[in-house]
Amino acid sequence: MEETVLEILEEICGTDEVRNDLDLDLFENGLLDSLGFIELLLSIQNKLKISIQPTEVTREQVSTPKKIIEYLNSKKGE
């Protein structure tokens, strides 16, 4: 799953920097905005079959690649 998430992020953010630094803040560094966030959620749903509503997560919960992966792992366990 981690590899798929990183591939999705690379595609949406347009850089492999997300793979090199899992603690990179995607919003603060201008790599992800609200539209990109929705695109991320849709890609996760399509590729990983994990549905996340935009209202069920805060920006802080998914601000870095590492946090996104951790959130999805916890979600998968539900």
Rank of each mutant, 00 (worst) to 15 (best):
L42W: 00
T55S: 15
E60A: 15
E78I: 09
S63W: 01
D25L: 03
N73A: 10
R59H: 01
L41N: 10
K49L: 11
E60H: 07
L22M: 15
L31T: 05
Q45T: 12
C13K: 04
E10N: 10
L32P: 10
E10A: 05
N29T: 14
I52N: 06
E3I: 01
G14R: 07
L9H: 05
S51E: 14
S74C: 08
D33S: 11
E78Y: 04
F37H: 13
S74M: 14
F37G: 04
S34I: 10
E17R: 14
L26V: 11
K67G: 03
E56C: 03
G36C: 05
V57H: 02
E56F: 02
E7I: 06
L42Q: 12
N73H: 08
Q53F: 10
D16T: 15
F27N: 11
N29D: 13
I8V: 12
Q45W: 09
V57D: 06
I69Q: 07
L31Y: 12
E28C: 05
N29H: 14
S34H: 06
L41G: 06
G30L: 11
L72F: 02
K66W: 04
R19V: 15
G14A: 05
I12C: 09
P65K: 09
I52K: 03
E56R: 11
L31N: 03
N46I: 00
N73G: 00
E10T: 13
L32A: 08
K76F: 07
E56S: 15
N20H: 08
N29P: 00
L31M: 07
K47F: 10
S51T: 08
K76V: 07
K75N: 01
L24G: 06
I50R: 10
Q61S: 14
L26Y: 03
S74Y: 04
K49P: 03
V18S: 12
T15C: 03
S34G: 12
D16V: 13
V57P: 08
C13I: 04
L9I: 09
T15N: 03
E11N: 14
N46Q: 11
T15W: 05
K66R: 15
I69S: 10
R19F: 11
L32Q: 09
E2L: 02
I44C: 02
K47W: 02
L35N: 03
N73R: 12
R19S: 15
Y71H: 13
G77C: 04
I69C: 10
C13H: 01
E39D: 13
Y71Q: 11
N46G: 01
L40K: 00
L35E: 01
E11S: 14
G36N: 09
E70G: 01
E70H: 07
T55V: 10
S74A: 15
L24P: 01
Q61E: 15
E39M: 09
Y71C: 10
L40A: 02
Q53Y: 07
Q45D: 15
Y71G: 10
G14P: 04
L26W: 04
G77Y: 03
N29G: 00
